[in-house]
Amino acid sequence: MNQFVTLLVGGLFLGAIYSLVALGFVTVFKATHVINFAQGSVLLLGAYVIARLHASIGFWPAVLAGVCAAAFASVLIDVVLIRRIRRADLGTLAILTLGVDILLATELSRRIGTDVLSVGAPWGNHVTELFGIRVATSRVVAGCVAAVLVAGFWAAFKFTDWGIAMRSAAEDGETASLMGIRRNRVAAAAWALAGGLAAVGGLFLTSFPAAGVTGGVGLLALACIPAVVLGGFDSPGGAVVGGLIIGVVSVLTAGYQEELSFLGRGLGGVAPFAVMLLVLLVRPSGLFGTRELTRV
């Protein structure tokens, strides 16, 4: 029982990190109707900048630089590429972001090489004990940061002019433009927010117990795709819930790997996608996604 509770708590903290990255996917989709597969390489970029700069300028300034670099890269993708073909179909836009992801990830992997870069987090490999359960301090900090950022996002989404503009643009972009909402500004803010959230997620995904920043870190964002699909591409709340579910499923299946060995090795990496498929069979739009009705 103690093992189950330990894995459950660890899964929730990991899910909080996934929620941040998934929230970036949802934000971009709501603002521009683009499935941003470049999120993984942007996550890697943010973690890479932090790892390279923390020794010279300090950890927290490096985190700020990493977040800004990731946000700027995301906005650049929108301004230079997406805006030019915004009227293209969903598949074309998704493939474009996938191409950007491959190019950026390849360049960053070339720069990192075979090295494993430390992000220099001040909590190091410390472990925190909560009610008799030992959890990596980095995961506890990640959970707290995620809670603050999600709460801030919810408040901004509900009560600020930007949130109202984004919801209006997502509901009916043409009407929103006629009402004076500048869709390009809304889109740029959404892409910047997505990049910043990816960088924060990358920071915690490369902190202990992870080894550090490697060329394959960007692939970790793939684990967030089931979270987005599970919650619904147009639901910020769904992204949070989906991230928590996927985090718990990943940790539990990895923790009980020996008991589930008859299902094969590496179950922890496959289980989130299996859960996603099962949910899609019942709710194609995700748990909280908006169902589209077509009159014929």
Score class of each variant (00 low, 15 high):
residue 18 Y to R: 07
residue 289 G to S: 05
residue 227 A to M: 04
residue 211 A to L: 11
residue 116 V to K: 09
residue 106 T to C: 00
residue 180 G to N: 06
residue 169 A to T: 15
residue 165 A to Y: 11
residue 75 V to H: 10
residue 285 S to Q: 15
residue 21 V to L: 11
residue 199 A to G: 02
residue 78 D to E: 15
residue 56 S to M: 03
residue 266 G to F: 11
residue 205 L to N: 08
residue 241 V to D: 00
residue 112 I to K: 06
residue 197 L to N: 05
residue 79 V to P: 00
residue 40 G to E: 06
residue 288 F to Q: 04
residue 116 V to T: 15
residue 215 G to K: 09
residue 30 K to G: 01
residue 99 G to Y: 13
residue 137 T to M: 02
residue 273 F to W: 15
residue 266 G to L: 09
residue 101 D to G: 06
residue 175 T to K: 10
residue 20 L to I: 08
residue 234 D to Q: 04
residue 198 A to D: 03
residue 68 C to L: 15
residue 90 L to I: 13
residue 68 C to Q: 02
residue 34 V to W: 01
residue 148 V to E: 02
residue 1 M to K: 11
residue 192 A to F: 12
residue 63 V to H: 11
residue 48 Y to I: 03
residue 263 L to P: 05
residue 79 V to Q: 13
residue 118 S to P: 01
residue 49 V to D: 02
residue 208 F to T: 08
residue 15 G to M: 06
residue 155 A to N: 01
residue 80 V to P: 00
residue 19 S to R: 08
residue 197 L to K: 10
residue 240 V to F: 14
residue 77 I to M: 09
residue 81 L to F: 15
residue 21 V to T: 12
residue 19 S to A: 15
residue 162 W to K: 08
residue 38 A to N: 04
residue 287 L to Y: 12
residue 44 L to S: 02
residue 182 R to I: 05
residue 261 S to R: 15
residue 81 L to C: 08
residue 122 P to S: 07
residue 160 T to C: 04
residue 121 A to I: 14
residue 47 A to H: 10
residue 229 V to C: 03
residue 128 T to H: 06
residue 232 G to F: 08
residue 79 V to C: 01
residue 181 I to H: 09
residue 59 F to H: 07
residue 177 S to A: 12
residue 183 R to P: 00
residue 292 E to L: 11
residue 128 T to C: 01
residue 258 E to D: 12
residue 15 G to N: 06
residue 254 A to P: 03
residue 213 V to I: 05
residue 25 F to I: 02
residue 204 F to H: 08
residue 175 T to C: 03
residue 226 P to E: 05
residue 254 A to N: 13
residue 289 G to R: 11
residue 240 V to Y: 12
residue 148 V to T: 09
residue 112 I to N: 03
residue 64 L to P: 01
